[in-house]
Structures are given as C-alpha cells and as structure tokens.
Amino acid sequence: MGFLKDLTTLTRQANAAYDRMDVGASMAAASRSMEDASRVLAATTPQPEEAAFEAVRLRATANVVDARQLPMVIGMNVVVELDLVVAMPNGFPLPVTRTEQVAPLHLARVTPGSTVDVSMVPGRPDTVRIEWGA
C-alpha cells in the first residue's frame, strides 16, 4: 500500500510541475543556447587559409595573460578564451584575444604566465594560430 501511495504522490507532483512549465520559454532558452554553441564552434574552428597567406605565415611566441573557460565542451575539448601578447619578430608586442578548443592534454600549456608557440600572417592579427604540435 505504501508503494502505491508514494507513486500517486509522485504522479501528482509531476503533473503539477508539468502544468507550471513554460514550454515557450524553454524552447527560446534552448534556441539561444544552440546559437551560442554555433557561434563558439565557428570561432574555434580553423578556417582554411589561402596558400599565399600560408607561405608568408611567421612563427612567434605568445605569453598567456589570461585564460577564461567558457561554459562549453566540444567533444573532450574545453572551450577557452585566451588573452595573448604575441612577441612579434620586429619586437612590438601584439595583444590578441582568441577562443580556442583546448584538449585536456594541453590545458596546462594555457595557464596565465605560460608561453605558447603561435604563427600569423603579418599585418593580420585575426590569423593568429596556436601551434599545438610545436
């Protein structure tokens, strides 16, 4: 008898929660979440560069000033927003902010104060790419 009473109570509570649920708001929140995920995925997916740009790409190093984990994981990769200062070959520092998918293996490499190898097309700070294999 106690089991059926508990089952009736749970059913009543579930029906009350369902009646209070705003499906439209839930769908709007899910839609916003998907738009955010699409935006982050597009920002972290490497874009194919023209062969001419790849030929003039310079290697440099960058200091990690700040690393902020975004509330998203793609596969096993954590999405992190990195504030970098690229040490250009001509000696001028170039501040850059990048959103990256970072594999768990590389998380220690992007802690504030660390140095990472990067490459970029001269005059195009939007082409800064972290060279994970270097």
Rank of each mutant, 00 (worst) to 15 (best):
P93I: 04
Q69L: 06
L58G: 01
G75T: 05
S33E: 15
E50H: 13
V79M: 06
P93M: 08
A108Q: 09
A51I: 13
M72A: 07
N63F: 04
P89S: 10
V116Y: 01
V116W: 02
I74A: 10
A55C: 09
R57E: 10
P122L: 01
E35C: 09
A17F: 07
A17G: 05
D66G: 02
Y18P: 00
D66R: 10
V79F: 01
M21E: 10
A37L: 15
G91W: 06
V96E: 00
L94W: 03
S31Y: 12
M72R: 07
V86D: 00
S119V: 03
S26A: 12
N63I: 10
G24C: 06
P48A: 06
D66M: 06
G24L: 03
R32S: 13
A29I: 09
E100R: 02
A28E: 12
V65N: 01
R39S: 09
N63S: 14
F92L: 12
V65W: 01
L82R: 00
H106W: 10
T44I: 14
A51S: 15
G24Q: 07
S33G: 15
R109N: 06
D22C: 13
M120L: 14
V56Q: 03
A28H: 12
A87S: 13
H106A: 13
A55F: 07
A52L: 11
M76F: 13
L41W: 07
A67P: 01
I74S: 10
Q101E: 08
M27Y: 10
T99Q: 06
G123W: 06
P89H: 03
V86I: 08
A29F: 11
A55D: 13
T127L: 09
P71A: 12
A60C: 07
V73A: 09
V102D: 04
L58A: 09
L84M: 08
A60P: 04
M88P: 03
T61Q: 15
R57D: 02
L84K: 01
V80A: 01
Q69N: 13
V121D: 01
A60L: 06
R129N: 14
M120N: 00
D66Q: 11
F53Y: 09
F53Q: 14
V86M: 04
R20Y: 08
V73S: 14
A25N: 08
D22E: 08
T44K: 14
A60F: 04
N77K: 07
V96P: 00
A55V: 02
A14F: 06
Q13Y: 02
D19Q: 14
S33P: 04
L41Y: 14
V116N: 02
L70S: 02
A62P: 03
D19A: 12
A103P: 04
T99R: 09
A30Q: 13
G123I: 07
